[in-house]
Design a protein around this nucleic acid. Structure first.
Lengths: 255, 255
DNA sequence: CGCTGCTTTGAACAACTTCAACTTCTGTGG
DNA sequence: CCACAGAAGTTGAAGTTGTTCAAAGCAGCG
């Protein structure tokens, strides 16, 4: 496949894969890990050549061989309903680790597919687990990562369970904004790598609804939409939409 | 599976908390762990006196001190939307471990509340983490447990994102049925410890809808409802409802 | 008994979906 | 460079599912 990683990890400069140097290193695996431990970790990580838009990173049903960390680009994960339609489970940005849900039974229950040209670090799971048992800091970091994903799943359940279409979309945009910002990109202007269809699917809405919402948000002066490019022009307004809906002001009375 | 592997669990008889003897031990923490390691684990677990219906196990905002394993009874977890309404995130049965989502930042982001009189094993998290770093089998089991929760969250997202009210409720009943069966109870007749309101809330529906569905399911001969007691009389019929909906038979043509 | 809270049922209403048509974009080949 | 075909996105109007509102039925409990 790609270049071999056995090239003595010391000289980080010459190394393609270097977590310590990676701009994402505080999002990704190594946190609070010593230099030498970090090198051991880097040693097991494989850098694969970039995958193209629509390429699969893994398929539902595949055995779990590796976890995948996104270096650049973006990936969607999804599974199929009984009647064969896609349900998108998440959109994943650089610095995120995919495949954690397959640890349970060592089988992927969703598929991962690139939304654009994407480069990936592959982390063989067995070796990672082994290393984690030797490096407490790594174990802890893995626990935290998984827990974080549980948290974000939970907050997403709230979106799907209680929120209106307006709240869902504004929530979605703000979530992306936050994550882009965290990664050093602009939080107020970014490209959506996924289609409207994907957004709708993810949010449990019809494409048409999403489309209408985009124009409604634009007309309301909250965002500017240029095809895939979104500019948030009124962050607070968007936040207001995403949060408490005031459809019942009388709630203060009943409360 | 069920029969104890080796009952030389020392004088477990005298021990209040004995995972090795616990009927839930294959659901809960210890799996593939040596006898002596198991004892170390049991040593850090505290058995608390049963909590009563509506008592809180932990509050949203609390620091994470312990994980909680349910021995008997049931618990709901929920958080509040910005406008103060409850969103139920899950119902938890004996053998399940609560609080994993708080590991990330050591703060609970949801509350846990007993649905009935419930007894709990408290597992101090720091000590557990410490132990996990010494016992690879324990680390692995924790990874698996968290991963399993990720999986079930994902399948629930599918329910909320794509399923109709009928599919949601039948899904819910089948899920409970399966879990009861797994725990040695009847899978076809069980008590709902949660209110209709809670069910509706969890499934993202209105109470009225859930109520109507119960009567509809009963009229269709799928279940029998006696207040909180549910008897599933047509498991396959219920499964059919939960799975692929046939609202479009023409899909075979378009597919 | 007569509360009180939970559940059920009916009827009107709203939000979102579905269907259908049209527009814009993208990439390909002449 | 333009034409064209297909995909993606937008917009309008009709249709449905599930919600909301209102009220009655029921069990549990002081």
């Amino acid at each position: 496949m790609s270049e071999s990683p056995k090239s003595k990890v010391i000289s980080i400069k010459g190394l393609k894969v270097a977590c310590g140097e990676c701009s994402l290193h505080d999002l990704c695996l190594p946190v609070g890990i010593s230099q030498s431990d970090m090198e051991r970790l880097e040693h097991i990580i494989k850098r694969k050549r970039p995958i193209q838009k629509n390429d699969f990173l893994f398929h539902s049903g595949d055995g779990l061989n590796s976890l995948y960390a996104i270096r650049s680009g973006s990936v969607k994960t999804f599974s199929l309903t009984d009647d064969g339609q896609e349900q998108i489970l998440g959109f994943h940005l650089p610095g995120e680790l995919l495949g954690l849900d397959a640890i349970h039974d060592l089988v992927h229950h969703c598929s991962g597919r690139a939304l654009e040209t994407t480069s990936i670090c592959e982390v063989p799971f067995e070796e990672l687990e082994d290393l984690a048992s030797q490096i407490p800091g790594l174990q802890q970091q893995l626990f935290r990562l998984m827990s974080k994903e549980l948290q974000s799943d939970e907050s997403f359940m709230m979106v799907l369970g209680k929120k209106t279409s307006e709240e869902r979309l504004s929530n979605f945009l703000l979530n992306l904004s936050m994550r882009f910002k965290q990664r050093g990109f602009s939080g107020s202007e970014f490209n959506l790598s996924m289609s409207r269809n994907d957004i709708a699917n993810y949010l449990g809405l019809a494409v048409e609804t999403v489309s209408r919402l985009f124009t409604r948000f634009q007309n309301a002066g909250l965002i500017e939409v240029n095809r895939k490019l979104i500019t948030i022009t009124d962050m607070d307004g968007l936040r207001a939409l995403a949060g408490a809906k005031c459809k019942k002001d009388e709630q203060s009375a009943s409360n």
